[in-house]
Design a protein around this nucleic acid. Structure first.
Lengths: 209, 209
DNA sequence: GCGACTTTGTGCATCGGTTCACAAAGGGAT
DNA sequence: ATCCCTTTGTGAACCGATGCACAAAGTCGC
């Protein structure tokens, strides 16, 4: 389920604060979900709590981490080292959760060779070689929209099946490949939509007759 | 609906390529959705196509833009000018869709006073004043997790009701306020989860007995 | 050891969204 | 003008997710 990372984050916070045991109700509040939903998620995942007590925080952290595959180390390549790619390379949230930025790749000769976040930026020509050699299994696309599909095709050709796409295009991929999309501009547009609703809905413009 | 921005992007591309009219089927493919869903979305929004022909691209662009509120100019403030905040400030995708970055705000005296993307970074003490004076209606939170809730409370207090949150925390807000969350680390965790599934599911570890 | 209380796990009803499939509507050719 | 072909708009079945409510299970105090 897509909510497990949310639970995991809440649990990590509790573990740090020394909480040993937590009820579904409390955890649900911390994660911002319904408690029945949370219990169903956890039961579906096979983990057991103790009736009358709750869930053991440590044990649950371990179970969810294992389910999510965070007990292993994932090598991530970031393609496209513009402003966004740079920010991602420096983002601390990746490392802390079992993800390791293993390669930075760009097409701009101006950028290739630079050192960012301790990594050497490599040329797009070496894309396939770098991915294969470093065992990269997840690729982050932070390229311009025009370049995204081509890069996508190339990384799929060398066996990558998980892609996080920041480029504002709909990637076409075989259905053996998972793509997750983050489009910053779309998020803002959705907010603007709701904001406008609050302000009284779309104006009653005299439409084309 | 949350899919309107997707349609809009596809339509913009078509308009640029000189396409005058488009069928629900073609547009659905371009946006990566089912054609019946698309037709239902569009009909629900009140726009009309022509049976036997399809939709007029220009007209549809206008209708959707109006529905999303993109005919007006939205002032956005970015709070937290770290790597991510900087990337967002420089991101071209905002401006091109009716969003204007009207303010950059940070707490770090080292950063305050810098000019980024043509804007002066202002101090967090001036948060309320800046938001009010510049007519900011959407706030982007790119602060560390610890600071997010406090900033959130302050901007809500001066009337902001739309927040785009990049900080990895669950914000607690009154339900008159819309919050959209983008958590980069969670996206990667979901990919890792699927990736692991493909590789044969969680290992059959000898669990705690 | 026993009873009252707490909390999990889940059956069931519900709900919203998705998809299918088709009738109604319009365009174009003859 | 009429017929056929294309495409929309939507009724209805379907599906998964959600939330309620409760029985089963286990703890804690006495």
């Amino acid at each position: 389920m897509a909510r497990l990372p949310l639970y995991l984050r809440a649990l990590h916070g509790m573990a740090e604060r020394g909480v040993a045991t937590v009820s579904s109700e409390d955890l649900a509040v911390a994660a911002g979900v319904n408690s029945a939903k949370l219990r169903k998620d956890l039961s579906h995942l096979g983990s057991y709590g103790t009736r009358g007590v709750g869930y053991d925080v440590e044990y649950l952290v371990y179970q969810i981490s294992r389910e999510l595959g965070l007990t292993q180390d994932w090598a991530v390549a970031i393609v496209g080292v513009g402003n966004l790619g740079r920010a991602l390379a420096n983002y601390g949230g990746f490392v802390s959760r079992g993800f390791r930025v293993a390669a930075l790749i760009d097409a701009d000769p101006e950028v290739v060779g630079d050192t960012i976040a301790g990594l050497n930026v490599e040329h797009i020509d070496a894309l396939e070689a770098v991915i294969t050699r470093r065992g990269v299994s997840i690729v982050v696309l932070a390229t311009p929209a025009e370049a995204a599909q081509a890069v996508c095709d190339r990384v799929i050709a060398v066996g990558v099946t998980s892609i996080l796409n920041f480029a504002p295009v709909v990637l076409s991929v075989p259905d053996t490949v998972d793509v997750r999309k983050v489009d910053l501009s779309i998020e803002l547009q959705i907010l603007a939509f709701h904001e406008q609703r609050k302000a009284g809905g779309p104006l009653m413009a005299v439409d084309g007759q």
